[in-house]
């Protein structure tokens, strides 16, 4: 299972435009992808669910762990990590 840890850099956190861009990219991938906060007790959410991501309520400076498995997962994870880490 591939995984990326990334600190969310956008001022709005993983909400609004960054959240939409993130989900749009995740939806193009065939495999299951999850997102969870690195520090916290909330269960991981589906990276293709904008409502799940919003409810996770990731703020600027918080670290998330993105996980995916399967063919092409590494590339998808790299792209998702870049979106989450973009200010």
């Amino acid at each position: 299972m591939g995984e990326r840890k990334v600190t969310v850099a956008a001022e709005v956190g993983l909400h609004a435009r960054p959240a939409a861009t993130f989900v749009q990219r995740a939806m193009k991938a065939p495999m299951d992808i999850t997102v969870a906060k690195a520090y916290g007790s909330k269960p991981p959410v589906n990276a293709k669910s904008i409502l799940g991501i919003l409810a996770l309520d990731v703020r600027q400076g918080e670290t998330v762990v993105i996980r995916a498995e399967g063919e092409g997962a590494e590339e998808v994870l790299d792209e998702l990590a870049e979106i989450a880490g973009t200010p």
Partner: peptide
């Protein structure tokens, strides 16, 4: 445009 596109994603949210 950004706001409406985010709403479009909500309408087709897989969990929903």
């Amino acid at each position: 445009e950004e706001i409406l596109k985010a709403q479009a994603l909500m309408a087709e949210d897989p969990g929903l």
